[in-house]
Amino acid sequence: MEFVTILLIAVSLAMDAFAVSISNGVSVKGFGKKQAATQGLYFGGFQFLMPVIGWVLGSSVKTYIESIDHWIAFVLLAIIGGNMIRESFGDDEEESGQSVLTAKVLLLQAVATSIDALAVGISFAILDVNIWWAAGIIGVVSFVLSFCGGMLGKGLGNFLQAKAEFAGGAVLILIGIKILVEHVFLGG
């Protein structure tokens, strides 16, 4: 898988964390660079770890599903992307009501925002992607966007939250379509 595709997947996966980071920046009293870096480490760490776990799970079943692997990758990415788009229209008030950013809150947010990366890791195993390289890119991108999202949230409010999640979902669906087209029509 080419670098640009991995980077687009990384940005798409980080949109949930970015949206939550904006919300944290808006709602957490005294939010600053330290809190932005801390949430970036949580989100980036889990966005790195979850694709690796998914890749291990996907590798164990790969030989049984090689003939339909491109369809599985497409369906997983379409479901993840569609869910992100659906959630972008929802009301996320419960996430923005935090007044203190504790380790427990960050852990729950990091796990919740990285579940999609688990499914992407399964797709990576099916597609023979170098998981360490891909997970590294995903983790770094998630850290950067989470840090920036927190700092942006401090000044911009909830305006960007739904739009970022919608964009991330749309990009994942487009990447799923690209994988399907490459395998079905272009013999990739």
Rank of each mutant, 00 (worst) to 15 (best):
V105A: 14
V140R: 08
E94D: 09
F43G: 11
Q161I: 09
G58E: 07
L41T: 03
V56K: 03
L152E: 02
S23E: 10
L186M: 12
T113I: 02
I138R: 02
I138S: 10
A170K: 02
L77Y: 09
I126E: 01
L77G: 02
S23C: 11
E66H: 12
D91H: 11
A110L: 09
L108F: 15
T113P: 12
V100E: 14
V61E: 06
S96F: 15
I53F: 15
D128R: 12
V111R: 06
K33L: 08
Q161E: 06
I115S: 08
A134W: 04
G90T: 03
V11H: 03
T5K: 06
T63C: 05
A103C: 12
G188A: 05
K62E: 14
G58T: 02
H183W: 03
K163D: 12
L145S: 06
G149D: 07
F185M: 12
G139A: 11
G188P: 02
A110S: 08
A170F: 03
A164D: 00
G149C: 00
N24H: 13
A17K: 09
L156M: 05
I137W: 01
L13E: 06
L174Y: 00
M151N: 05
L49D: 12
T38I: 15
A110T: 09
G45A: 01
V56N: 00
Q98V: 08
S59K: 11
P51Q: 00
E2P: 10
H183C: 00
L118W: 10
G176S: 04
A164L: 07
D128F: 12
A134R: 08
S142L: 07
G97H: 10
I175L: 03
D92I: 07
